[in-house]
Every structure is written in structure tokens, then in C-alpha cells.
Simulated scan of single mutants.
Amino acid sequence: MDKPYKIPESVLVVIHTADLDVLLIERADKAGYWQSVTGSKDREDEPLRQTAVREVFEETGIGVAEEGMPWAENPDAVPSHHLRDWRLSNIYEIYPVWRHRYAPGVVKNTEHVFGLLVPRGIAVTLSPREHVDHVWLPYREAADRCFSPSNAEAILQLPRHLHD
């Protein structure tokens, strides 16, 4: 069976500590491409918050204690209220190298930005199929390392969303 097309609506989750260090992960399919957690909805009616929680866990192994998620009762899960919807959306052109994942004619994606406050030293377990390395950097350095302009801009906005 053919793999279904990706939905052109996604989340970007800036994972950070209280002192503004940001987690970046390096893409497995593009060496040197560093980013925050990103991912598309699995289905049209999937709530964006659920997409964010799922993608954070799939890509980093960090659980958010969101009701209904399998890891919600895990004592290592980050409290649900630490995941904040920044109410910021970006519409951008999908890089040509990844357009084949979308339905024919789809060239733009709408990305919704979230922030996730985590404790310093939290364990990160990457999905090797998606990412090969991770690093914690002060937020300005993290923004400089991102390949995506919208990701870099979101990271630069972190200080103003820290206490949302």
C-alpha cells in the first residue's frame, strides 16, 4: 500500500531549559541540518497540541504528561503545563527536496510554534531513523545553527514566551 501524503500542517516545538538553553537535533537525511522538533499532523483532526506531544516523544524520547498519552503516568514525563502554545504560525514554502511527501501541487506548509520547558539534564533518546545527534546551546547560538529561518526566528522569540 502506498504511504499517505503528509498533511501540510505541522508543529515546531522549541525545547528549552529555564536558563534558555535550547535542544537542537541533527537530521539523519541531511547532515549539518540542525533543528528543533518538527512534525506534521497524523490526521486532519489531530489537535495541534497532541501533534506536539507525539512528535516530541517520537523524536527525543521526552514524554509530556498529557492525558491520554501512553507515557502520561511516567514519573520522568514533563508536566503538561510546561508545553505552551505560543500562538504563532508560519506559512512557508516546502523545500523542493521534501515536496514528494505531499500531495501533488502542495508547496506550502503551515507551522504552529510551541515551547516546552524541561529540566536541565533531561535524557534525550533520538529516533535514529530521523536524527543522528543532539546538542544543547544558549538560545542565540541555537538560532544561528538552525537551517530553517522560521525555526531560528522562533528560538529568538524564546525569552518573551518564557513566562506565557
Rank of each mutant, 00 (worst) to 15 (best):
L23E: 01
P138E: 08
A152W: 06
F147W: 09
T17F: 04
V107Q: 12
A65I: 10
A65T: 08
L83H: 02
I25L: 06
P119W: 07
E46S: 04
A143L: 05
H16T: 06
R129Y: 08
I155W: 05
R120T: 14
G105N: 05
Y33N: 11
W34F: 07
W34E: 00
S40R: 06
V124Q: 08
E141L: 15
R54C: 10
V78Y: 02
A143C: 07
R160D: 09
R87E: 12
R145D: 02
L88N: 02
I122R: 06
S148M: 07
L158R: 07
L23Q: 02
C146A: 12
E153Q: 14
Y95K: 15
L116E: 04
G121S: 07
A18I: 07
D21G: 04
T17E: 05
A123F: 03
D45F: 06
H100Y: 13
H81K: 11
R101Y: 11
R84M: 10
K30V: 09
H163E: 12
N90K: 09
S89N: 11
V53Y: 03
W86Y: 05
I155D: 02
D133S: 14
E55C: 01
V107S: 14
D133L: 09
R54N: 13
V78H: 00
L116S: 03
S40V: 10
Y139L: 09
L83W: 04
W71S: 09
R43I: 07
V97F: 11
V132E: 02
P104Y: 03
D45W: 06
N151V: 14
P104K: 10
I91G: 06
H100N: 11
H134F: 15
A154G: 10
D29W: 04
P138C: 06
F147Y: 09
D2E: 13
M69D: 10
A142L: 00
W98F: 14
L48C: 07
M69K: 14
S127M: 06
R160S: 10
L48E: 08
G115N: 04
R43M: 11
P75L: 02
D144I: 03
S150Y: 13
V132G: 03
P8E: 08
G39T: 08
D76L: 12
A77W: 01
L137Y: 05
A31Q: 13
